[in-house]
């Protein structure tokens, strides 16, 4: 296995008297994909914020593309460089786009910041990115309010890819989409990985989505990693009680809901 492109060691985040993330470590190989699986309160979203610099870790370190990003960026150049290394796509396609900006404009704005280039060069790149995520010209130039959730999410993905990041954090990025649209986006994410070699961190509660998109997974519960390993092994042969409970709670043909005692 090649050198990891992203490593988190002993990541800890404390909010007041609540430890949201507790000594979490993982490594993402270059071109690989790692799932961070958990339910609400597991700390998985906080991990996404730590990785992207939206929150600052209380302890532990994050190395991405060979550089430490545990502390806030000190200069504008450093901030931009980090932006060109790790990007994020959020869950809600309705709040993750500026309502006053078309997809073309928001992608162009990112290109201008990171790569510069003439107006014509940038326009060509915007069109390329739109092709990559399957948006036509009309959708590309429409305001978000005139687009469906799936189309908005395609724009959010194109915008995240505009800086040509090496790592893409997908924070429940397909959770809010309809089943038929979700399949389209999952296929597209697979194609993008093949085409660009980008590595994925998928934050998700949906085990079937995790199975489809990732090679490795860590399972988080109350801020801690309870199980880590190849995704297929974790789902087919869970070793920990919590992972098993998670696995058994997913409806499937022949499944019956189980009552547990309330905590």
């Amino acid at each position: 296995m090649s050198e990891p492109i992203l490593t988190a060691s002993g990541l800890t985040k404390v909010f007041g008297d609540h430890t949201a993330v507790d000594d979490v470590s993982f490594a993402l190989p270059e071109g690989g994909s790692l799932a961070i699986v958990g339910e609400s309160g597991s700390g998985k979203t906080t991990v996404a914020k730590l990785l992207t610099g939206l929150e600052r870790a209380t302890a532990g370190s994050i190395m991405a593309c060979g550089r430490d990003r545990s502390l806030p960026a000190r200069s504008a150049a450093e901030r931009r460089r980090r932006g060109a290394e790790v990007q994020i796509v959020f869950q809600d396609p309705y709040s993750s786009l500026d309502p006053r900006q078309s997809g073309a404009d928001s992608i162009d704005e990112v290109r201008r910041l990171h790569r510069g280039g003439s107006r014509a060069e940038r326009a060509a790149r915007v069109t390329e990115l739109a092709d990559l995520v399957g948006l036509d010209n009309r959708q590309l130039h429409a305001l978000p309010r005139d687009l469906s959730g799936g189309q908005r999410q395609r724009i959010a993905i194109a915008r995240a890819l505009a800086a040509e990041p090496r790592i893409l954090v997908l924070d429940e990025s397909v959770a809010a989409l309809d089943v038929s649209i979700q399949a389209q986006i999952l296929n597209m994410l697979g194609d993008i990985r093949d085409a660009t070699g980008v590595s994925y961190i998928l934050i998700s509660h949906d085990l079937a989505v995790v199975r489809q998109l990732t090679d490795d997974a860590i399972v988080m519960h109350r801020g801690r990693v309870v199980e880590a390993g190849p995704t297929a092994r974790i789902l087919d042969d869970p070793q920990e009680d919590y992972t098993r409970l998670l696995r058994d709670s997913v409806p499937r043909p022949g499944w019956k809901p189980q009552r547990r005692q309330v905590a």
């Binding site: 992207t52 959020f90 709040s95």
Partner: peptide, 21 residues
């Protein structure tokens, strides 16, 4: 709203995000 967070992650400065968005 998350579009602001997305711009922060891109590396835009705070005052630019405020002024433009």
């Amino acid at each position: 709203r998350e579009y602001i967070a997305a711009l922060e992650v891109q590396g835009f400065s705070a005052w630019l995000i405020c002024l433009r968005h």
